[in-house]
Simulated scan of single mutants.
Amino acid sequence: MKSLMRLFRSEPSIARPLYEQVVARARQPHWYVAGAAPDTMEGRFAVLATLLALTDLRLERGGESARLASVALAECFVDDMDSQLRQDGVGDPVMGKKVGSLVGALGGRLGAWRRVLEGSESWEAVTGRSLYRGNLPADEALAHSVVELRRFWEGLEGRGDEALIGGVLP
C-alpha cells in the first residue's frame, strides 16, 4: 500500500520556490498602476507569462541544474494553470485544450523575448505584444514596463543558478 501511495504523491518541485516568487512579482501593483497592464485575468496572465518567459530564458543559459529547473518551472506553471481553471469551473473535457492554449501563449512569449535578447527585436515592441497584446497604453506606462522588465532581466542575469532556483529574485 505504501508504494501505491508513493506512486500517486507528487514530489515537491525544485522550481516551486522560484515559481512562487515570479507569481509574487507578477502581482506587484506597479504593473497595473504605473505600467497600465489590464487588471483583468488576461492582463494578470500576461504579466505572469512575461516574467516567466524571462526567467525561463535565464535558466536556459545556466548550468545543468538551471536547465532542469527550467523544465520544472514549466511544470509548476501547468499545475497552477490547471488548478486555476478548475477553480473557475473548467471541467476535464476541455481542460487539456485550455491549458494547452496557455502553454502556447507562454511559448510564444519565450520566442519573442529570445529575439529581444538576441537583438533582433526591441524591448518596446515585444513589451507591447507581451503585456498589452498590441493595445498599447500611454507612452509613460509602456516606458515604465520596459524599464521594469529590463531591470528584472538584468537582475536575473546577475543571480547565480542556485540562488535563482531557490527563488531569490532581483
Rank of each mutant, 00 (worst) to 15 (best):
D56T: 01
G104T: 00
G167E: 03
P17M: 06
G134S: 11
V146G: 12
G91A: 11
H30V: 10
L7S: 03
V23T: 03
L52R: 09
P93G: 06
L131P: 05
R9I: 04
S65I: 01
T55C: 10
R151L: 10
L68V: 08
W113L: 03
Q28F: 09
Q21D: 06
A143N: 08
R61H: 00
E20A: 15
T50M: 06
D88V: 02
E75L: 12
D82T: 15
R115N: 10
D92I: 06
L169A: 11
P137E: 10
D56S: 13
L142Y: 02
S70T: 01
G158S: 13
Y132I: 12
R67G: 03
V147W: 04
L57A: 03
S65C: 03
G63N: 14
G104C: 09
Y132N: 09
V103T: 13
T55H: 05
T40R: 14
V33R: 14
R133F: 15
A105V: 00
A15W: 10
T127D: 05
R115P: 03
G158D: 11
G134E: 09
G155L: 09
A74H: 13
D56Y: 12
L18P: 08
L4H: 04
L149D: 01
L110E: 10
V90T: 14
E162W: 00
P38F: 03
A138M: 02
L48R: 14
C76T: 12
V33P: 05
D139T: 13
E11D: 09
V94T: 13
E154M: 07
E124D: 13
G43W: 06
Y32S: 00
R159P: 01
G96Y: 07
L59N: 00
A138S: 12
R159H: 06
E75N: 15
M5K: 07
Y132Q: 10
R151C: 07
L169N: 07
L136T: 02
S120F: 00
F8K: 03
A138D: 15
V47G: 08
G89D: 08
P12F: 02
G166L: 05
V90Q: 05
V47I: 14
G43Q: 09
R151S: 13
T127E: 05
R9H: 03
H144I: 04
V116N: 03
R109C: 07
S122Y: 08
R58T: 03
A37F: 07
A46T: 04
R9N: 07
S122G: 15
D80M: 08
A125Q: 14
A24P: 00
D92H: 09
A46H: 12
G96E: 14
P137T: 12
G160L: 02
A26W: 09
G96V: 07
G134R: 10
T40C: 01
R6H: 01
Y132H: 15
G111T: 13
S3I: 04
